[in-house]
């Protein structure tokens, strides 16, 4: 996973509330057993004129210059709610989004972001709305900064907004770590737990697969 430290980029406001993962990538766009090839399906239901087509809807924000170059998304409450499909995060990442700023996230989506190099930034609704207003007046020039080292979002008007992110998530993003490798450093503890647990809860331990 690539490391994320700080990013200054065009931010696209998409402030609808409760944007679900079906909207981020519709099921019909997940055509292969793969984590790639998904950018085209991002927001397909809104980005294209008719379902399944590739004729762009010019009203949709990510189809408009300069938002085509957006690397940051500003979103409404409960962004990424709904299905657990990690494809939503893979599609965002492949399209180019590296940070999402929202008042709250669907919990599985939030975890999926961290595991794929997208920073989920939680800020108050009023701040997100103010950021949206600021960038909208001249999106190509009025850039947003997401600084994960300092845990601060820098706005075009010079204001700075601190955000909280769990320590482990921040480390994983900053270092671009592989979470399995990190956990396997504790393998001795895991195996010891299992041995003890076998006498405490023997019914958990099934014979071979059937």
């Amino acid at each position: 996973m690539e490391k994320f430290t700080t990013l200054t980029a065009i931010a696209a406001p998409l402030l609808r509330i409760n944007i679900d993962t079906d909207a981020i990538i519709p099921s019909r766009e997940m055509k292969r057993v793969s984590k790639t090839g998904l950018a085209e399906g991002l927001f397909a239901g809104w980005r294209y004129k008719t379902p399944g087509s590739r004729e762009e809807n010019p009203d949709f924000i990510l189809n408009q210059a300069p938002y085509r170059q957006a690397r940051i998304l500003l979103a409404g409450i409960n962004f990424g709610c709904g299905s657990s499909r990690e494809h939503a995060v893979w599609a965002l990442h492949e399209w180019g989004i590296l940070a999402v700023v929202a008042p709250s996230f669907g919990s599985i989506f939030q975890g999926n972001c961290v595991r794929n190099g997208i920073v989920p930034v939680v800020l108050d609704n009023a701040i997100v709305e103010s950021l949206a207003r600021q960038v909208e007046s001249d999106p190509a020039k009025r850039l947003l900064t997401v600084d994960l080292v300092e845990c601060v979002v820098g706005a075009p008007d010079g204001s700075r907004h601190t955000f909280a992110i769990p320590r482990a998530d921040r480390e994983m993003l900053l270092e671009g770590l592989d979470s399995i490798a990190v956990t396997l450093k504790r393998d001795a503890e895991i195996l010891a737990f299992r041995e003890q647990d076998k006498t405490r809860r023997p019914w958990i331990y099934l014979p071979t697969a059937a």
Binding site: E86, N112, A168, S179, I190
Partner: peptide, 17 residues
């Protein structure tokens, strides 16, 4: 519910953080 990457983690390590 978890994502697919977390699924890999659970399968490989029997644990989740």
């Amino acid at each position: 519910g978890i994502g697919s990457t977390e699924g890999e983690h659970a399968l490989a390590t029997k644990t989740l953080a």
